[in-house]
Design a protein around this nucleic acid. Structure first.
Lengths: 198, 198
DNA sequence: ATAAAAAACGAGCGCTCGCTCGATTTTCGC
DNA sequence: GCGAAAATCGAGCGAGCGCTCGTTTTTTAT
């Protein structure tokens, strides 16, 4: 094992290959022989970059959850004070991030379960932290009297799957020709009407 | 192969076992030896009830999609005329159905992908038909002037993941102690405010 | 009670899996 | 240009897979 973090070009190739193959057939069904072929390394060569197959899964899961955390917490100046704008920014940023890193997110979402406890815990906690970011904004909006939300936690929980649907069912939206901006505006409008103080 | 449809007690046991094992570790990782052990049959005995492992998957997928279709189309008298009531009934019925058949739905949702094209097509088409049921009601509500919806198809697409979240993330809601009625009311309220004519 | 039919069994087949390790190739300081 | 160190290779290992099939057990009819 050379590096704990993804640095070398080869590791990048390996991850690109595992995301590509897993999206077609699932992670478990992706053999290291296929992975070697697509990444351009040999069977043995792969093992210079990770300890075992599960490590690969954990690496990707970690990268995804850290990226989400980092991006969503990096709120532009002057946005965080206004809950309406902050929420809009969170929705748009989340959807655009998952679009840019779609294979990563599909992988993390679809492959997390049925795996060693540590990996599953990682995914679960990441989901909860993201939800917290949303419920915090909702809470502030309620406190400022701009949102009317009965159950802040449940509402945050309901917003989450709206964001995830874009990458989970990406094929459906692609077939329909829905542009990402239409989807983003649709979600923002849907959510804002649902929580607006009338 | 004895019967094409699930009739005998043994086939019921097999399906119960495969749902149980798959929910823990995924369908592919469930070996026929494990399945034999849990279902109480022998390796060879299993093959009296299905042709091969993939057939099992298709059987379950078919059962789920046919059940959804049948249940959601069986609208009680006097409901279908009022879009608001019809939509409410659809949401509640869908969530309660997936709760009652939770292992079946989780299986269909999580295992459909990465499988032979026919099985995937089955799942995709079922999803689309369900969505049609919702978009039809929305359309009628708009026509009657009780709903204000810009894009009926997009809105139906956004309602779907709200229904699915209850079984996809069942563990989260269980840990939180959210009762199913709270969830149902939450979704109905959320959706109704989002599409209400103001 | 018995024999034919039906159902259930499980060791064994061919195959692919994740992973290893000695051999080979590439890199690089001098 | 050379030799040691680093990187890469891929045949081979044991394990476990889906599936088969000759055998045994159970059921059924007389």
């Amino acid at each position: 094992m050379r590096k704990p973090h993804l640095a070398t070009a080869n590791l990048a190739k390996i991850i690109e290959a595992v995301l590509k193959l897993s999206s077609r057939q699932g992670f478990h069904e992706t053999s290291l022989r296929d992975l070697a072929k697509v990444s351009g390394l040999s069977m043995g060569g792969l093992y210079s970059y990770f300890d075992n197959k599960n490590t690969l899964l954990v690496m990707i899961l970690t990268e995804v959850s850290e990226t989400v955390e980092a991006v969503l917490r990096d709120v532009p100046d002057g946005i965080a004070e206004t809950p309406v704008e902050h929420l809009r920014w969170l929705i748009e940023t989340h959807i655009r991030l998952t679009e840019a890193m779609q294979p990563w997110f599909v992988f993390a979402y679809m492959e997390a379960k049925g795996f060693p406890a540590p990996a599953r815990v990682l995914a679960t906690e990441s989901e909860l932290r993201t939800e917290r970011i949303f419920s915090d904004v909702l809470q502030r909006g309620v406190a400022q009297g701009v949102f009317a939300v009965e159950d802040v936690n449940l509402t945050a929980a309901l917003i989450k799957p709206l964001l995830q649907d874009w990458y989970v069912k990406r094929a459906k939206y692609r077939k329909r020709g829905t542009p990402i901006q239409t989807y983003i505006d649709g979600v923002i409008g849907f959510v804002e009407r649902a929580i607006a103080k009338k």
